[in-house]
Design a protein around this nucleic acid. Sequence first.
DNA 1: GAGTTCGGTGAACAACTGTTCACGAGGATA
DNA 2: TATCCTCGTGAACAGTTGTTCACCGAACTC
Lengths: 226, 226
Amino acid sequence: MTSTRRPTPPRAGRRDGAARPPSVRAVDKGRTRRALLDGALALLEDRSLDNLGIREVTRAAGVAPAAFYRHFDRIDDLGLVLVDEAFTTLRQLMRDARDDVTAADDMIEQSVAVLVRHVRDNQAHYRFIAREQYSAVVPVRLAIRHEIRLFATELAADLARLPVVDRWPTADLVMLADLIVGLMVDSAKRLIDVMEEAPDREPTVVADTERRLRYLAFGATAWRPS
Amino acid sequence: MTSTRRPTPPRAGRRDGAARPPSVRAVDKGRTRRALLDGALALLEDRSLDNLGIREVTRAAGVAPAAFYRHFDRIDDLGLVLVDEAFTTLRQLMRDARDDVTAADDMIEQSVAVLVRHVRDNQAHYRFIAREQYSAVVPVRLAIRHEIRLFATELAADLARLPVVDRWPTADLVMLADLIVGLMVDSAKRLIDVMEEAPDREPTVVADTERRLRYLAFGATAWRPS
DNA sequence: GAGTTCGGTGAACAACTGTTCACGAGGATA
DNA sequence: TATCCTCGTGAACAGTTGTTCACCGAACTC
C-alpha cells in the first residue's frame, strides 16, 4: 500500500519562511485521510452519520479499523470536516457570482446557476448536508446551522447594495436574506432528489427555483419596511 | 403485567352492525403498542430512526425484545405510524383554523397560532419529523414528503378563495402554497429548537414567522402571474 | 366447561460493534 | 550511518445487536 518510489527528500536549503515542501509521509497520510472521508461519504449516501460505524468506514477505505484513530478522535470530527468541505467552496463561489452582477435579475439567474452546478458536482456532500441539517450528532447540527447563518449574513451584505432595498433597516434585510437562503436550501434538496430520481425533470426544478426567487424579489417592491 | 380485573365479557346481543366493544385483549395490546411508540419517541429525541434499535425500544417500553414483532415487522413501520400521528391531527387543525376566517391577515395569525400550539403540544413528534424529513429510511422519507405535499395542496385550495389571488392560474397558486408551506416547515423547526434552547425567545420566533408570512402575502400584490 | 387463539416471555444464535495494544516497516532527521 | 517518530497492522476485549423458537397463561369462542 506504500513504497511506490522514493524521490530523494527535498534537501534544499530551508531558508525564508516559505511553505516547506510536503514530506512523503504527510502526503501518504493525506491519502488515507481522503480515503476515509470518501469512504464515509459513499456510505452516507444511504446511512445517517448517527449510524455510521468506524469499522464500516475503514472497511470502505480499505484500511485497518485502528487506522481511523490516527486521523479522527471520533466519527463526529469526520462529519465536521465534511460540513466544512461542502460549505467553504460554495460560499466562495456564491460571493464571486454576486460580484459579477448588478441587476437583481442577473443575480438570480447567476446564483441559481452556480448552485445547480455545485450541487451537481458535489451530490454526495449535499445529500449529507441535507440529511444532517437536523442531525442527532449535535456538533454537526450546530456546524451546519452556523454555516447557513454565515451564508445569510453575507447575502444580506450584498443585498444592501441593490437599489430597491438599499434604504431598508437591517432587520428587514436580514429577513429577506433568511427567506432567500431558506429557499435555496430547499431548492438544493429538491435538486439532489430530482437528480437521482428523474434527471430529465431537472430543468423544471431549476425554472421553479428561479420563479420562486423572482417572487421574493417582487415582494420587495410591495413590502413597506417596519 | 396483566390480570387487574376481568369484567364479565360484553356478552350483549351482537346485532345491528355497530362497532363491537373493544375486547380486553385488544385494549391490552393497544397499551403495549403505545408503550413501544412512546418509548421510541423518547429515544428519537437524540437518535435518528436509522440508528434506533429494536432492543432499545422494547427496553424503553419495559417489554421483552420479541414482543416488538407482535406489533411491527420492522422499525420502519413504527416510524410510519409516528409520521401519520404527527400529520393527520395537524392537517385537521389547520383546515379548521382556515375555515374560521376570511381576511388574509387573520388567516396568518390564526395559522401561526395553531402551528405554535401544536408544536408545543407535540414536541417529540416534531423533532422526529424534522430529523427524518431527509431520513435514510426511505419509506419514512417518502411518507413525510407525501404528507407535506398534501398539506400544500389543501392550502392551495383554500388560498383560491382569497380575493387577491382568486384569478391566478393554478401553477402560481401552487407556487405560493409551496413557499408558504416551506416557510411553515422551517418555522416549526426553529420553534422546537428555540423551545428547548431558549424558551424565553419563543415570542421572537413567532413574531418573525408572522412577519415573513406577511412578506409573502405582500408579494402577491406585486406578482404578475405568468 | 372444553378448546383455540393471542400476546408476552426468556433463552439461544451468530454477527457485529468501538477501542486498545504491542508491534513493525520505513520516512525523517542529524 | 544510526536513531527517532509516524502511521498502519492484526489480534484481542467485552458488549450489543436482530431474529427465532418453544412455551405458557389468560382472554376469547362455542
